[in-house]
Amino acid sequence: MSVLVYTQNWDGRFKKSSFELVSYGSKVAEMLNTSLVCLSVGAVSDEELKKLGNWGGKRIIRVDNDYCKVLDNQVYTDIIAQIALKEDARVVIMSDNSEGKAVAPRLSVRLKAGMASGVSKLPLSVNPFTLYKRTYSGNAFAHMVVNTDIKIITLSQNSFDLVETPNNAVIETSNITVDGSLVRTVVKESQKQTGKLLLTDAEIVVSGGRGMKSADNWGPLVELAGALGAATACSRPVSDEGWRSHEEHTGQTGKVIAPNLYIAVGISGATQHLAGVSSSKYIVAVNTDKDAPIFEVAQYGIVGDALKVLPKLVEAVKELKK
């Protein structure tokens, strides 16, 4: 018996969210009185794999072959399913990110394992196995019972605190065979920015809305984000107008994020926007309208013009960093 955590890598490196998963998996294994196994697919160095040991990873299985160079959902499903069966996994945990969303549902069917996605807490109980998951776009949470022998969880990013439990991880290289005929996804073209802080990874996000008034006014907002080590985001009207790129749109149909701090500047806080940010630990709002719904979810607020307030915030952060 085991709990299996799939730790995605980005060009051979792990991120904080990988360690979150391992910390989470380690606790779930404890709850079930069993042990944790981490699975890494692709080319990752021993040194990098060993890092998983800091967060409770004891056994690490590496699968690396020619078929896993490109994300083909069927190939990845096959690899994870084979390891899950071999390790007699009771719970398989993945991140609720784009790769997790692409692969976990297939795995659910393959293993006939009930799945809960967007989980943000440890299981509420192990018998029956009950998970706390996001529903109605953050307007409610459900206690979802999973009835099958194997359970699949996708964990929301930044929803679980890292727990440092250093131990010397043992790395095994698995010799499973992958059916090469499953590879059917061919990448024709790839555009990737490296080194940019991703919105979904950022612990602080500074976001602008219609109150920014035009595409030309974003200098101080970007400066504030830079000074705070934050990522930038925007509301839907802003990306629809083309003031900022669509990748920055946070909200129901855009990105759903849960940073530690979300600073909403000139955003009124429509239901659809809040659906994307309501799980943020702290929300700060700057808006001219004191009755704007954003202030109902904010812990700190400034009623004022975004363009006048931003330079003052930039100055204060710079002062602080001195």
């Binding site: 659910s108 006939k112 394992a113 009930g114 799945m115 809960a116 009950t130 529903t135 953050g138 307007n139 409610a140 949470f141 459900a142 206690h143 979802m144 019972v145 999973v146 009835n147 099958t148 309501s278 929300i283 709002a285 700057v286 202030f295 109902e296 979810v297 904010a298 812990q299 700190y300 607020g301 400034i302 009623v303 004022g304 013009d305 006048k308 307030v309 003052k312 915030l313 100055e315 204060a316 002062e319």
Partner: peptide, 25 residues
């Protein structure tokens, strides 16, 4: 394979603390 036992609303957040815009820092 799964079922929802119960729903709960997100816990209410603390009331917003307002800061004077003149003293935004």
């Amino acid at each position: 394979l799964t079922g929802i036992k119960v729903y709960e609303k997100p816990s209410p957040r603390a009331a917003c603390k307002f800061i004077d815009p003149e003293n935004a820092g």
